[in-house]
């Protein structure tokens, strides 16, 4: 596993190919859009998706916590697919998430799917978090940003390669804004060429596609032209 270092707003960050960010100076791990209990949310509307999405997401989160041993974890909103999500956690998943939140300082940023704080799980809740030169929030605030880390759009990118295009979730960053891919097992993606993402990066930037154990970096402009 090879993380990619990124100098961002004067800070040195590490992009993890699993789709998370580690900030060594603060011992801080950030993940976006866990969408826990998306499966059961769909089930309540009649689409009986397999119910293990929360377990799968927590498996991946546990691996990240082992790898980085962070002092604090920032979940960048939409941590639960809906407001009642935390109440629908299976007992095993609830215990597991509880243990994680007890071992690390968790900050739950509110998202559009889960504006209310999760119930029954430790950690602080906030609309946004400012730390040094960086600000963590769910959705990017339109207009010029300074050191903003966000999620919300679930960026993915398609790269033309020999034998056809390859689409992967990705980070996208310019000097001032860094958008994380969605981390949840059932979270889909929005192509970075979509105007909703394009408007947030008017001066281009770089995308980092998630690979199996490393990241693949491309200039944003190259993807947009394609």
């Amino acid at each position: 596993m090879t993380p990619a270092p990124l100098h961002f707003a004067g800070e040195r960050l590490l992009l993890d190919p699993a789709g998370a960010i580690f900030w060594p100076a603060q011992g801080l791990l950030a993940v976006a859009d866990l969408h826990l209990e998306k499966g059961s949310s769909a089930a309540s509307r009649g689409a009986l998706l397999p119910p293990w999405d929360t377990r799968a997401t927590l498996d991946r989160l546990a691996a990240l916590l082992r790898r980085w041993q962070p002092a604090q974890v920032v979940a960048l909103g939409d941590s639960f697919h809906d407001d009642g999500g935390s109440l629908r956690l299976a007992p095993g998943d609830l215990a597991r998430l509880g243990a994680m939140a007890a071992a690390h300082r968790f900050v739950w940023i509110g998202g559009n799917h889960d504006p209310a704080p999760p119930r029954g799980i430790a950690g602080e809740t906030a609309a946004e978090l400012r730390l040094g030169r960086l600000v963590f929030r769910h959705a990017a605030r339109p207009g010029p940003a300074g050191g903003e880390l966000c999620g919300h759009h679930h960026p993915k990118a398609r790269v033309a390669a020999r034998g056809g295009g390859i689409s992967r979730p990705c980070f996208i960053a310019d000097g001032r804004r860094l958008m994380l891919p969605a981390f949840g097992a059932y979270a889909g993606g929005l192509d970075v060429t979509d105007p909703a993402i394009g408007a947030l990066f008017p001066r281009g930037g770089r995308v980092f596609l998630l690979g199996r154990d490393r990241l693949f970096s491309f200039p944003y402009a190259a993807l947009r032209a394609a």
Binding site: V159, A160, A161, R162, G163, I166, R168, R206, L209, G211, R212, R214, F216, S217, F218, P219, A222
Partner: peptide, 20 residues
Amino acid sequence: GDDDDRLEEAALVAEALGEA
């Protein structure tokens, strides 16, 4: 695995062309 190899190839090409 091969998709990763193909991505690597695409990334290399971008670097060689000065795009990345």
